[in-house]
Nucleic acid binder design. Structure first.
Length: 803
RNA sequence: GCGGGCGUGGUGGAAUUGGUAGACGCGCGGGAUUCAAAAUCCCGUUCCGCAAGGAGUGUGGGUUCGAUUCCCACCGCCCGCACCA
């Protein structure tokens, strides 16, 4: 529960927090101590954008948003522990973050290095990859430049192996998310070895398929590989080829269709095993930042190499064959990546792929021309942002002493308030006094670091601060040990990699330096679906352009089968049901719905119908139905009679079965199923005549809807004379004897087709059931005198006659 | 291309280990109530058929007494990653 305070709560928040609230309230009723906190991920870009656009201070804007959103959350009735509320822009919070950052620096997990960044020359700031659209800054529209800057990094790669291994134990995480993280970490094992070049240099290459080394027919280096760069100095053909490679688009579609391009350097490389001289190419499909930036090309068993070899008429040799007898058959237009037996490969012939991989690595290491190596896709985490509204990185640059951490007793390094956003760039950088400080070590004039931390750092440890909030430390390790790991972490799938990986890393890093004992922050993860709505639009087609205008749900009205702009005869196009978004205007404001239907109806809608992991299509008809159900419950509850007498055994059974089922459904997060059960019991209670059983059913219903519709439940609870708050009352007990029916319906089948149903006592013997079945006229008519070959009896379920 | 997920009525979706497909909600149809409407209540609502009956869970096959569920092939949609050597 750590939203970005963007200004207003949206339906996605409501859905997420309603699920969490139901769990929290339910578990409290079950007698557990529940920590259900709320805080604010309050640093970040939108506040600075607002400052630039509206001239308001990011801090004031953020605080105002928080106040507004908190009021909204309170209106919805979430049982949150507001005593633990904090925002990441509180100096107390980010001060502790600075101390932790300094601790990690001391432990060698923070470092600075020069790296290439996306630089927006108009806004004068670094942009994240996802903020660069078609090579242009998303805000300014300016052509983004690659710049080399000194940046702060966190050594997440030190934990790569552990982060990967830890996924195995996260059984209550969706398989999908674990897989995404696994791919992102991207472990691969292989061989690194070098080719001696005819120009006297050596080129190291990396391969995961050393077993195919005898099939290598060329060597290729990336366009920005040192070998290519050196050649470009004296050869403008090379230089222009490299430029051509770099110009290629970066979007997925462009990459997919990009043709393999190579430039023959006319240098040759000696194969370490065969001594053959292989041509060396500069190739556009080789990446400088993966492996060594150079590869051995094995066209027979790699599709990219195959495409390349085909284009440049290089030899294609089969070195792995599914059938060794056909080792020299021609290729069928594509590489053969499959498993098989090694052929045409000297000492490897006859081995399996796995054995050959080991054999080559062993031989390379023995002869000293290569080593087994593990390569990771995961990179260290660059946390520098040239921004104002973030946690200042607590370091000082001194000409004499170098990079010096701000002493702990001088933390927090707070943000100055007197900043301006009227010109682009980092206000901290151009502030007249803020960055000028004395070096803590030598006392001479020095400069404060003006970069602030990526906001993902703020959200990488907030859950520890929720556990306890001492003033002098970030958290109390005992409280952390008591509450962590988080038992129910609910969020959108968009956090699958970044936030969830960073938080896992921070938790490990803090454990590594002895601050906490827990390794994994989130024991169970649940990724909820989006709230969706259809879109309404009109398109206008000009001679050169085509424009689509969207309309919000309250700007349109439906008359018959057509949807019009309200109060007009202009029809709109009703589009697909997609995620609510401001740009498509298909949003519904929770406040407006609450004002109309009440918080309980909105909460109920969030839980009904759609399984929580799937998308929830918002509809007016749906919320109206929920609203009606609230009224219906109220009418039923109003008919409660504490003194009613008489027993309705079947209603008693239904009540207890429902209590047990709803509990199981809530625990499994099957809210839609719990809702359906409550509907059923409500219907049964309505149909039942007044009796003690009916009153008991009503009391049970009040308890069961309490976590979902707290307002109605509390109102009724008080009305029917309940003690205190129903939120504090225990979940109703279940009588196991009432969970089983004493009569069951038995399906009678002939050849697996249903012919009749009968009622039989629960637990009736197979023989008894068979006899009852054979007495069925419908079944006999179907059998029609045919000899019975077999009778299958599933007790309490069915009888199937086979003829 | 690689990886993952999903296909059930008009619609959102239910369905223990393979055992009565369509619970429950929405919508729709009919009726009651009302001067009328709203609200409410009752009945109906997978398809074909007057009925008996038949068909039916994306398509085609398979295993089984019995398949939404298991296996094989295919089609469609969605998501993630991507020239990762």
């Amino acid at each position: 529960m750590f939203p970005y305070p963007s200004g207003r709560i949206h339906m996605g928040h409501v859905r997420n927090y309603t699920m969490g609230d139901v769990l929290a309230r339910y578990q409290r009723m079950r007698g557990f101590e529940v920590l259900h906190p709320m805080g604010w991920d309050a640093f970040g870009m939108p506040a600075e954008n607002a400052a630039m656009e509206k001239g308001v201070h990011p801090g004031g804007w953020t605080r105002q948003n928080i106040a507004q959103m908190k009021a909204q959350l309170q209106r919805i009735g979430f049982a949150l522990d507001w005593t633990r509320e904090f925002a990441t822009c509180d100096p107390e919070y980010y001060g502790h973050e600075q101390a932790l950052f300094a601790d990690l620096y001391e432990a060698g997990l923070v470092y600075r290095k020069e790296s290439t960044v996306n630089w927006d020359p108009v806004d004068m700031t670094v942009l994240a990859n996802e903020q660069v659209i078609d090579g242009k800054g998303w805000r300014s529209g300016a052509e983004v430049e690659k710049r080399k800057l000194n940046q702060w990094f966190l050594k997440i790669t030190d934990f790569a192996e552990d982060l990967l291994a830890g996924l195995e134990n996260l059984e209550d995480w969706p398989e999908k998310v674990r897989l995404m993280q696994e791919n992102w970490i991207g472990k691969s094992q292989g061989l690194e070895f070098s080719f001696d070049l005819s120009n006297g240099e050596r080129v190291p290459v990396y391969t995961t398929r050393p077993d195919t080394i005898f099939g290598a027919s060329f060597v290729a280096v990336a366009a920005d590989h040192p070998v290519a760069q050196a050649l470009a100095m004296n050869n403008c053909d090379v230089a222009s080829f490299i430029a051509r490679c770099k110009k290629g688009g970066t979007t997925a579609a462009e990459l997919e269709t990009a043709e393999k391009l190579g430039f023959d350097t006319e240098i040759s490389a000696r194969h370490p095993l065969t001594g053959a001289e292989l041509p060396v190419y500069i190739a556009n499909f080789v990446l400088m930042d993966y492996g060594t930036g150079a590869i051995m090309g094995v066209p027979g068993h790699d599709q990219r190499d195959f495409d390349f070899a085909t284009k440049y008429a290089l030899p294609i040799t089969r070195v792995v064959a599914s059938d060794p007898a056909r080792a020299d058959d021609p290729f069928k237009g594509e590489a053969e990546a499959g498993d098989g037996v090694i052929v045409n490969s000297g000492f490897l012939n006859g081995m399996s792929v796995d054995d050959a991989i080991q054999a080559v690595i062993t031989r390379a290491e023995g002869e000293g021309w290569g080593t087994g190596r593990t390569v990771w896709r995961l990179r260290d985490w660059g946390v520098s942002r040239q921004r104002y509204w973030g946690t200042p990185i607590p370091f000082i640059h001194c000409e004499a002493c170098g990079v010096v951490p701000v002493p702990k007793d001088q933390l927090p390094v707070t943000l100055p308030d007197d900043v301006s956003f009227d010109i682009p760039g980092n206000p901290l950088e151009r502030h007249p006094t803020w960055k000028h400080v004395d070096c803590p070590k030598c006392g001479r004039a020095a400069l404060r670091e003006t970069d602030t931390l990526d906001t993902f750092v703020d959200s990488s440890w907030y859950f520890l601060r929720f556990a306890s909030q001492p003033a002098d430390r970030p958290f109390d390790p005992e409280e952390v040990a008591k509450w962590m790991p988080v038992q129910h972490y609910i969020g959108g799938i968009e956090h699958a990699i970044l936030h969830l990986l960073y938080a896992r890393f921070w938790t490990r890093a803090l454990a590594h330096i002895g601050k906490i004992t827990v390794q994994e922050p989130f024991a169970a993860l649940f990724t909820q679906g989006m709230v969706t709505h259809e879109t309404y639009s009109q398109s206008t087609f000009g001679s050169t352009s085509h424009r689509t205008e969207y309309f919000s749900p309250d700007e349109v009205e439906r008359r018959g089968n057509v949807t019009y702009i309200k109060g007009t005869d202009e029809p709109v196009l009703v589009g697909r049901v997609i995620k609510m978004s401001k740009s498509k205007k298909n949003v519904v404001d929770p406040d407006a719905i609450i004002a109309r239907h009440g918080a309980d109806a909105v909460r109920w809608f969030m839980l009904s119908d759609s399984p929580p992991e799937r998308d929830l299509p918002w509809s007016d008809a749906g919320i109206e139905g929920c609203s009606r159900f609230v009224q219906r419950l109220w009418r039923l509850f109003s008919a409660y009679d504490a003194g009613a007498v008489g027993e309705d055994k079947s209603l008693d059974r239904k009540t207890h079965q429902t209590i047990a089922a709803v509990a199981a459904d809530i625990e499994a997060l099957g809210f839609n199923k719990a809702v359906a059960r409550i509907y059923e019991l409500t219907g049964a209670a309505e149909k039942s005549a007044p009796s003690a059983s009916r009153s008991a059913a009503i009391r049970a219903l009040v308890h069961m809807v309490a976590p979902m519709m707290p307002h109605l439940a509390e109102e009724v609870w008080a009305k029917i004379g309940g003690e205190g708050l129903i939120a504090d009352a225990p979940w109703p007990a279940v009588d196991p004897a009432l969970l089983v029916d004493d009569e069951v319906t038995i399906a009678l089948q002939h050849m697996g087709k249903l012919r009749d149903t009968i009622t039989a006592p629960k637990g009736a013997s197979k023989d008894a059931l068979e006899a009852l079945a054979l007495a069925s006229a419908n079944l006999q008519r179907s059998i029609d005198g045919a000899p019975v070959r077999k009778v299958i009896v599933v007790p309490d379920r069915l009888v199937n006659i086979v003829t």
